[in-house]
Design a protein around this nucleic acid. Structure first.
Lengths: 332, 332
DNA sequence: TTGTAAGCGTTATCAA
DNA sequence: TTGATAACGCTTACAA
């Protein structure tokens, strides 16, 4: 096993003091070019890396970002978090940060995790997902001046803090416009019960796109149901059996869309269907779906965080709203 | 913001020395009951948590375990890692460890990540997934005496190091037996090209179960193809159009099974299909599939690691082979 | 431009 | 059984 390489090893090798090595790393401009080169050479020759624990003790910064890993939810959407996490890890790495995982079952236990992570590991920042749960977490973090970003807008008070989100309304609008462009006029919407910010937002896209086209969204084709394949199937079946059925359905999720698809096939209709999230299931069954730019969203989260962490403290909370894109497949 | 609580704060509050507080935490048996109680009271009253960075400097142990997060693979199987990660995080938490994420594109970059993580963060251990890539990583870690577990058997030299795996042969055997029990006799197998340990193992289950039932596995129904929905569909189509087609298909993955299902439906046959991994897709389309006990596998990984880390060094590498279970749905 | 000294919070060693 | 001292590797302040 290789000997432990510390700043002292490097200093000895480059025949300078430990402090000079530290300066080369943290404030290169203070060191003469020639010395700097000699030290750099020693650093690479020895494969030296600053020990984070020691650095952290001195600076109070851990270069660690925490993110919660959720149990795969009931539905299909587990893979969204998966892809987001990967993007987060990758972006953090290039910015010199590492990601730490934690679990929690609700706001209270999540705040407990914050407390623990902060006290034991001196975490620099948190990435929060799913802002539907309420605001206890953001309030707690804000109160303690802990930097954080949420992936997902806070639907109550959007200005308060940093967030990155994907424009859901734009996504469903794109889907709706696509259906309009291919000749559909009776376009229904299958969404979640009113009150969830994300769900309401996605519904707005359908409303907007129809009105743009001079069509008043028909209330009888505007349906709401919990997010589940069976739920989607039931509601779609109901819609398709009505007197004046839709020729196309815009859905708030791939789960609902998959249910709708099953209804369509069972009843043997030619009805177009679009989903949301572009999950592997959508790819698998050829479902046209709205795709979120997850790697970009993750990159923005890291950027927002490191701006606050590395730079002077930001004046105002920054917000990023990204555009999703429609992935065309067989169903629409 | 609350003042920072250190071991000194607790010592003052309990009117003992810092060392005594440390002893209460790390070697309680050295401290008199009465003193111990007083210190414990102070600890809870102040909400003290040992600073890991400082502790690590002294002990050389970080209580951190690293695991690689992969980009979601092409197919359907992304959610397997997702669920495994969650289990890992949860089990690690109760054992007093945290999980750190890293990314890598191949063995070389993964070893680079090891090096970095070890030098900068003093990682205690690694969890490796996907042992098909070869052995460069395990050799590197072994050489440096870094504890690790692999999720997935090393197919070349199973005795060398700690691993946890799921018995794939048992999974496909269960699926095959189920089909036999429901009257099927012409049961085909859709698997991956020979040479991948996991794939070969799963194929064995099909062979075994058929032979158990006194049926010699028919070579014409034993097919291999890369893991993809289209691939599965093409091969299944070919099988179904043959002179003496199978009445059921055991597949090595949900991707292949989904392809097979599409072939079955397109050709309008009544052919049973089983998949492997019980992905959300399987749940979504009603595919009978073999389910891996991911939380348990994760728990065993953590247990194996902490045994080495916390206890005396283990005598011999431990191995855990878990049994999967068949989740019955509509397709078989 | 470079070097010296101190201290971050913890635990191991050893003395009381 | 408890307490003082030193040390882990690093960076900030200050002196040369």
């Amino acid at each position: 096993m290789a000997e432990k390489v510390t700043i002292a090893t490097v200093a000895r090798q480059a025949r300078v003091s430990r402090q000079t090595v530290s300066n080369v790393i943290n404030s290169p401009h203070l060191v003469r070019q020639e010395t700097r080169d000699r030290v750099q050479a020693a650093i690479t020759a020895l494969g030296y890396r600053a020990n984070q624990a020691a650095r952290q003790m001195r600076t109070g910064r851990s270069r660690l970002i925490a993110v919660r890993i959720e149990p795969t939810r009931d539905g299909i959407n587990g893979s969204v978090l998966d892809r987001f996490l990967h993007g987060l890890t990758e972006s953090a790495e290039v910015a010199g940060y590492r990601l730490m995982l934690y679990t929690a079952t609700d706001d209270t236990s999540e705040i407990g995790a914050f407390d623990d992570l902060l006290a034991a590991y001196d975490l620099d920042a948190f990435v929060l997902t799913g802002t539907d749960h309420g605001d206890a977490r953001t309030a707690w973090l804000t109160e303690r001046d802990v930097p954080f970003v949420t992936f997902g807008r806070p639907w109550d008070s959007p200005e308060r803090y940093c967030w990155v989100d994907v424009d859901g309304a734009s996504g469903t609008a794109q889907a709706t416009r696509r259906l309009l462009a291919t000749g559909h006029r009776r376009i229904g919407y299958l969404g979640w019960p009113a009150g969830s910010g994300v769900g309401d937002d996605r519904r707005v896209g359908w409303l907007t796109a129809l009105r743009e086209a001079g069509i008043e969204p028909p209330p009888d084709l505007d349906r709401q149901t919990p997010d589940g394949i069976e739920d989607g199937e039931a509601v779609a079946r109901d819609l398709l059996r009505a007197a004046d059925p839709p020729t196309a359905l815009v859905c708030a999720s791939d789960s609902l869309a998959l249910g709708a698809l099953q209804a369509v096939r069972t009843l043997d209709r030619a009805v177009a269907v679009t989903g949301f999230d572009d999950t592997p299931v959508a790819r698998a069954v050829g479902l046209t779906s709205v795709s979120q730019p997850l790697p970009q969203a993750a990159a923005h989260c890291v950027r927002l965080l490191t701006t606050v962490l590395d730079g002077s403290r930001a004046a105002t909370p920054a917000h990023v709203l990204l555009q999703p894109s429609l992935v065309l497949r067989q169903t629409a």
